[in-house]
């Protein structure tokens, strides 16, 4: 049928298709590709009045300064360690919640629970920081006024004390993300062939054995995909979580600063473009290498699960 059309109308069709793509591709060029080219700023001493092209080259000086500070090591440690803790907990808890939701006989409750757990997903981190403030505010927070006294403990200046913050940030992260994790795993658990479980029942398998030998292997592709994505973003962090929730408090720097908050503060407050761009480039390059490596390893072990 297709050969009935003249080649003229065919080529006109294609030129229309190419025209349609112009706005989107133009946006990607500006928003994504020009900044990729702009990474050379990290090797310059930026002088806004001269413009980025005429600013003098300084080689690796920005990086030397950056890695000479003790801050950067704390920041890298925070970024990576928080990510590792988050990944492990959200995966284990996400799968656990998903299994419970799948097993729940009361369908109404299961559906209600699914809807409830994704509520925090819809919040902005600004609203989330208000909620955390309602808990932790030194004068009015529920922790200092109600919960700690009930436990016989003295009030804490939450926004000045480092100690509790790794736990607080982990709880907030899980509160925000456990829902989507559980929903993703639930979608793949629902797809598992029921006969596998029935056969296992006949063999007298315990509930835990069924999880280990049937559920987890069956949802392995999902687990691998999500882990792969998380490993790829190991050097990135949620800016909002680490900036808003601790109120960008300087006293908490050691336990709340990550590469993303560092770049923001260096660029916007300390006006230190050199350090900010060096830290940013470090993040981009390491992130890129990690994605490629993680994908390479997966494609060798398990070609079906590789991302590309």
């Amino acid at each position: 049928m297709k050969h009935k059309q003249t080649s003229l109308s065919k080529s006109r069709h294609y030129s229309i298709l190419y025209l349609m793509m112009v706005p989107g591709l133009l946006y990607l060029l500006i928003n994504n590709y020009l900044p990729m080219v702009g990474i050379f700023i990290a090797f310059k001493k930026l002088d806004y009045s001269a413009g980025i092209f005429k600013s003098p080259w300084v080689g690796l000086r920005n990086f030397k300064f950056l890695f000479a500070t003790s801050d950067i090591w704390i920041i890298i440690r925070n970024t990576v360690v928080y990510n590792i803790v988050f990944i492990i907990l959200e995966t284990v808890l996400g799968i656990w919640v998903a299994i419970m939701l799948a097993d729940l006989a009361n369908q109404h409750l299961a559906r209600l629970a699914q809807v409830t757990i994704i509520l925090p997903e819809l919040l902005s981190l600004v609203i989330c920081s208000y909620i955390v403030f309602a808990f932790l505010s030194q004068e009015n927070g529920i922790m200092n006024n109600t919960i700690l006294p009930a436990l016989g403990l003295r009030p804490i200046g939450w926004y000045n004390e480092k100690g509790p913050w790794p736990v607080i940030l982990t709880i907030v992260y899980l509160w925000l993300n456990i829902g989507s994790q559980a929903i993703i795993y639930l979608a793949s658990i629902v797809g598992i062939n029921k006969e596998l479980y029935e056969t296992a029942d006949l063999d007298g398998a315990s509930r835990f054995q069924k999880v280990i030998y049937i559920t987890v292997p069956c949802i392995k592709p999902t687990i691998v995909t999500l882990l792969l994505l998380s490993v790829g973003s190991m050097f990135y962090s949620s800016f909002g979580l680490f900036y808003l929730i601790p109120h960008n408090s300087g006293m908490l720097f050691d336990v709340t600063a990550t590469l993303d908050t560092y770049v923001y503060n260096a660029l916007m407050h300390k006006n230190n473009v050199g350090m900010a761009s060096a830290a940013g480039l470090f993040q981009s390059v390491v992130g890129f290498i990690l994605v490629l490596t993680a994908n390479k390893i997966t494609s060798r072990l398990d070609p079906d699960n590789a991302l590309f």
């Binding site: 990607l28 500006i30 928003n31 994504n32 590709y33 020009l34 900044p35 990729m36 080219v37 702009g38 990474i39 700023i41 990290a42 980025i52 790829g232 993303d260 770049v263 923001y264 660029l267 473009v273 900010a276 761009s277 940013g280 480039l281 993040q283 981009s284 992130g287 890129f288 994605v291 490629l292 590309f308």
Partner: peptide, 16 residues
């Protein structure tokens, strides 16, 4: 897909 794998970072993007 490449735009999802490699980012220019905040500084060049902000300056742009």
């Amino acid at each position: 897909i490449l735009t999802m794998l490699f980012h220019g970072g905040i500084v060049p993007s902000y300056i742009l």
